[in-house]
Nucleic acid binder design. Structure first.
Lengths: 169, 169
DNA sequence: AGTTTAATTCATTTTGAATTGAACAAATTT
DNA sequence: AAATTTGTTCAATTCAAAATGAATTAAACT
């Protein structure tokens, strides 16, 4: 991704924006979100006034395609909301500050999904162990049990995390 | 990744192994671990007897390079231990069943790292807001505050997770 | 209606990570 | 010590995800 293009804004503003963008790009890396999406969110988050499509494109030096695609994703997950000034045709975007929702969505779409898929698999495994050669059965049964333990423990952890993140705001 | 090569083992054994491998490959996807590494761990985990390098290579149909590389990683994070039968030259591998350690390592290397990097960035941002144009300052200050909140909340969550996962074995 | 501006779509390209495979090293056997 | 077997390393390849940009649609203005 090319460096930020700065136009003629105060240097501090640009620097602030860059720093925010970097923050989000970094964080996104951890959870496997594309850089461009994180950068778009970052630049919107870093702007006091709602940002237009064109502004985002210009500030980040991204292609129209990436901006469109990124904004679509961000709207879908509710990370960004459109602030239509009916007077104008251009769409303006502000961050949806309920970051809790973001995390919720993430947990749901990734962790939750994986957990229930995993549940099915573990159940399947439990059935299969029964058909194993007697010599190996007890060992393998132990292994599958481990899997079950971890699965249920993780499952139990999820609501805890949810609750915790819900606490303030 | 090519399908499992089965050699002449009982069909149930192969099926069991495949299922376990799939379980781990799936889970790995969630946390961004390479398939091959997950598959190697899976096949070791699914085997009652320690597995040799050659066995892993054959069962998964991976290249020597991948197996070597994968085993290296798995050893480094303590997911797998070498069960040397001094009589033989071939290295044999068993799963290190302390999966807790695995998760610990993961949390440490990824989450922890990101959290402290993020901490620095947030501190930096806090300083920068001061230099913003007065008109925008209060808005931006609010935003940075949000970031701080989330950062500290996540930081607080981590030990909770650790404790929880430590509970039983 | 025709022109301009704004944004989306999607086939192609780019990029970066994962995997391969061939060359190499180390230990073992004959 | 030559040949063989076992595993490592790393440059080259492959592959999938991400980004691009040109074609297209949609809306607004003349």
């Amino acid at each position: 991704m090319p460096a930020l293009r700065t136009r003629e804004r105060p240097a501090e503003l640009a620097a602030f924006e860059t720093a925010v963008v970097e923050f989000f790009v970094d964080a996104a890396e951890l959870v496997g979100v594309p850089k461009s999406v994180a950068a778009i969110y970052g630049s919107i988050f870093a702007s006091a006034a709602p940002l237009s499509f064109a502004e985002i494109e210009a500030r980040l030096g991204l292609s129209k395609g990436s901006v469109s695609q990124g904004l679509k994703i961000l709207r879908e997950v509710g990370a960004v909301k459109e602030v239509s000034t009916k007077a104008d045709r251009t769409e303006l975007f502000s961050p949806d500050l309920e970051m809790r929702k973001l995390i919720e969505r993430f947990l749901e779409s990734r962790v939750q999904r994986q957990l229930s898929a995993g549940g099915d698999r573990v159940a399947d495994l439990r059935r299969r162990v029964a058909a194993m050669p007697p010599a190996e059965q007890s060992t393998l049964q132990g292994r599958v049990k481990k899997l079950e333990q971890w699965h249920s423990r993780t499952r139990a952890l999820l609501p805890l995390v949810r609750t915790f993140l819900k606490l303030g705001s």
